[in-house]
Simulated assay, not measured.
Amino acid sequence: MSRVSILSSAFVALSAFLLAVPPQAPAAIPAVAEQSDDGALFAAMREADLRLASIAWRLATANAALCRDVAPTPGLIVHAIDQYDPGVRKQLPALFGFEGPVAVEAVVPGSAAAKAGVEADDTIEAVDGKPLTVSPAGANQASTATRDSAQRQIAAEPADHPLRLTLLRHGQRREVTIPAQPGCRSRFEMMMGPGLSASADGDIVQIGSRFFERFDDRMIAVVVAHEFSHNILHHRDRLDAAGVKRGLLSEFGRNGRLFRQTETEADLLGVILMRNAGYDPHDAVRFWREHGGEVDGGLFRSRTHPSSSARADAVAAEIAAIPADAPTPYRPALLDRAAAPLQ
């Protein structure tokens, strides 16, 4: 279920401060959107993006003390007008603000950005007084380069310092200072498509849009926490360092064993991340028992992954092993091996 275990669809290069963003190349959007007077498609996309961003923000900020790599996590979803197909861009200022190239798609309720007064449809002009860069790549085709640059600029700010944004709304410019809100560094995105696909590559987490149609946020949190754990545990880099083979050889011998090891580790850390963020970790047990076959292919699953019943059993045992008086956040011993070579 992860890119490290090669069962993914191809997180567009995105927000290093835990944001969900629209799909990289929404080629199907123009024709549909032009038939929709009320922008229902875009509204549904924004709603799903916000659901993912809210889950990711909650997991990232609650577990910041556990992570070596942290970044500003203000609770913003940033998008750029040139990441959309040119044929649909004329509609976007009315739907998303866009008084400039980069805007706030949505704001996570309760986040530092929300408390500072940042609102959906605010245009972002500068970060800490430095103007955002517009890439020429999006002039004639959909490109994420402008958005990615804005996200990197925000992510480069110190995680333990306030974040200062210059915003524009209805022609009125204002400076907003967002209190520091560190979170575990990763980037999150909803991925359009019909399958129940999810992936992580060390930097980015992608969650398929089908999850948002099929499951409630508690179940989606199980999937997000699992993929997020791959990044926190640096599984991609550690698998590469171990010289594992991908493709047809990934399921056999040492390759398959190490892939299964990383999947189990992500399952176990995932329930800790959930517990620390106030989710019920037992939801992970229910997810794997009741829905695991839908996600991993059941009898036809890749042997780079344990069976869903084995995953449910391992997760249940991990939950039972958490001390009754464990603090929040609880730091599992598994994190002590996050930099160790895979054996």
Rank of each mutant, 00 (worst) to 15 (best):
A242I: 08
A284D: 00
A120L: 05
T133G: 00
T73C: 13
A113P: 08
V271S: 14
I232K: 14
W288Q: 04
H79F: 09
S186N: 15
A33Y: 12
V295S: 01
A159S: 15
T177F: 00
L273K: 11
L7N: 12
R303N: 14
S111N: 11
E189W: 03
A324I: 06
L50D: 13
F188W: 04
Q153P: 02
Q141T: 09
L163M: 10
A27S: 11
E99G: 02
A120K: 03
A43L: 11
H79L: 04
G247H: 02
A94I: 00
I220G: 08
H79Y: 04
N63Q: 15
F17E: 12
A155F: 04
G193K: 12
P72C: 07
D217C: 13
F212W: 15
T144G: 12
L52T: 10
L92M: 13
I322F: 01
R68W: 02
A40N: 13
M219C: 07
H234R: 15
M192T: 05
Q91C: 04
M274T: 05
Q35I: 11
R246Q: 01
P30R: 10
F98D: 09
I232Y: 14
S308V: 00
T262L: 05
A116H: 09
H291D: 03
A113M: 04
P86V: 08
P22C: 01
A120C: 11
R51P: 14
R246S: 12
Q151I: 05
N231Y: 12
S302F: 02
W57A: 02
L66C: 11
E175M: 07
F228P: 01
S2R: 12
S15A: 06
Q35M: 15
S36A: 10
M1P: 07
E318M: 14
D38C: 09
I124G: 08
V244Q: 01
S2W: 07
F17P: 06
R286M: 02
R68Y: 01
M45W: 15
L196T: 07
A312R: 08
F228G: 11
L41Y: 13
P74N: 05
R89K: 00
Q172M: 06
G97A: 06
L92D: 11
K130V: 15
V102W: 00
G253A: 03
Q153V: 06
P327E: 09
D237H: 05
A43N: 09
E290S: 03
P323M: 13
F96R: 05
A60G: 14
A155I: 04
T264Y: 09
V108F: 06
H79I: 05
S302C: 10
R337V: 02
R260M: 10
F98Q: 06
Q206Y: 00
W288P: 03
Y330S: 04
A200E: 06
E294I: 04
D82L: 01
A113D: 12
D283H: 07
N231W: 13
D128F: 06
A320F: 01
V88W: 13
L50Y: 14
V224M: 10
I272T: 15
V32D: 11
Q35P: 04
R89Y: 00
F11T: 03
L342C: 08
Q172E: 14
R254E: 15
D128C: 08
L233V: 10
V205C: 00
A155S: 13
A43Y: 13
D160V: 04
D203G: 11
A116P: 06
A145V: 03
A284I: 01
P26D: 14
G100F: 06
A156I: 07
S15L: 03
